[in-house]
Design a protein around this nucleic acid. Sequence first.
RNA 1: GGACCCAUAGCUCAGCUGGAUAGAGUGUCGCCCUCCGAAGGCGAAGGCCGUAGGUUCGAAUCCUACUGGGUCCGCCA
Length: 580
Amino acid sequence: MNLFADIRALVIQELEAMTAEGALPEGLSLANVAVEPPRDAAHGDMATNAAMVLAKPAKANPREIAGKLAERLAADERIESAEIAGPGFINLRLVSGVWGGVVKAVLAQGEGFGRSDLGEGRRVNIEFVSANPTGPMHVGHTRGAVFGDALASLLAYSGHEVTREYYINDGGAQVDVLARSVYLRYLEAHGQEVAFEDGTYPGDYLVPVGEALKAKVGDAFVDKGEQVWLEEVRDFATEAMMGLIRADLAALGVEMDVFFSEKALYGTGKIEAAIEDLRDKGLIYEGKLKPPKGKLPEDWEAREQTLFKSTEFGDDEDRPVQKADGKWAYFAPDIAYHFDKVSRGFDELIDVFGADHGGYVKRMKAAVAALSDNRVPLDVKLVQLVKLFKDGQEFKMSKRAGTFVTLRDVVDEVGADVTRFVMLTRKNDAPLDFDFAKAMEQSKDNPVFYVQYAHARVRSVLRKAEAAGWDVSEKNLLEQEPGTVHPAELATMRKLAEWPRMVEIAAKGHEPHRIAFYLYDLAQAFHALWHRGNDEPELRFFQEGNESASLPKIAIAKAVSVVISSGLGILGVTPAEELR
RNA sequence: GGACCCAUAGCUCAGCUGGAUAGAGUGUCGCCCUCCGAAGGCGAAGGCCGUAGGUUCGAAUCCUACUGGGUCCGCCA
């Protein structure tokens, strides 16, 4: 049930009836007709812009259209009043029974209240994290992981068939570096003194990998040349790193459906096939690039190379797919990878990248547009940097200084739930300040706590009611008829009614942060209602010895907890039963 | 030199694909604890939505140009 969609359907229906009667010209587009909550609650429960949107194409006065439409809308049994305001808004006030109906819908549908078939079962592939398999995940990856996972849940909740996917960059030079680093640890495990020079990874996390390698191959690789051990050590190390990363993801509560290996694209003809596909479309050619403007690299020289005509799809330059030595540039396997995704039949692709990949977006979109003949849209979500704060001081990450903050550091300190929620209280394209102290603070300025507190309060009320021997099952609460609904309660019910709409908006825009903000608003409405009970005992949810007065209010409270629970579920956060 | 992102209250940020008098939190100021949980509650003050143009019934939102900040810019991935 989506009350806003229902009322919008009513508006559309009446507009069509007006057209049929000749009050409006034929053929008007009703696509922009919206039914929204008014900014100011004093204006009513809902407002529609229908008259203003249609005034121009209908060549009529907006207030005139509004007048006719309002009259018709007012005749509906759900609508108490329809008033024209401002330039031609129609403010609708709904009969109070409608709001009670919302509570009932929540209780009856549970977690299903807010689910929709918006996606119509379209298959969406979300690629996220995709951290290089060269070490544990750090905070930057964490934000991408949380964002991608929440977006995936949001789309699944909205009727999409979602695949969570991780692209393992195990095909490039960085895994050779990893292998050499592990080899050093391996020598170390054999008692040798080793030095970690530039271009190797000195992190302690490779110590156990070196030891494990020793346990596996003994001294077979000691004092041998790279050609003997590189390949095997590389595989061994990559696997070990992926083990680390999987464990990190698990600690955060992220579960991937697919791990896709870059290496698996090499030697199988997949890259060549993807490039050939583009070549057949006339989008691959041999040529020279213009030198980049501004400061030139020292050794720049124009060179003939294999280029992808990404400019045909809105990119600024054509992009090379091959390096000078004839090997594929990183872009080539990435094209092949996306070609693979397209050919797996996805209707929509989403890539979640770090902000430092911003320059890569256009060419990737160009590639997907070309590969899919513009059939499959690719949305690239760039996740901005996370700034860490400890005790109010910015805490700079630096591999060299050893102040390298891993996902584990954060999760161990504040827990997965808090980490996830905090990271979702910001748009993905805005930088995020993560303050350890604030994340743990139990006060109103900590949204995590505030939302959890609302949920815990409801559970507390339910426990009390149960202790009093009352039946607070959904079934029984559904049968409660509230006598008169207090205006303070209406505010909370209105918020509940917005949930399906909010999910839809968030899903359409690929913006899971909206869910977090909505939950904060809902919690706020609930807390406000709770506190009214201090002064007005008849508003309390649990009224000692007065079951019949309490149960309708408990129904509202329970509905709030259901929606909070749904919302937190999308964000991947466990709702709190109690706080201490 | 170019590309992408950002600019909204003193501070940290929302703003629902163009709607009405731009909202939260924090900070400041004023009230409120015999009360289902005061680790709070109610209220007030606080704004040239970076600047200048444009699009239209209507712009924080869309377009252009500036200004300021971030990220990045063949043969790294």
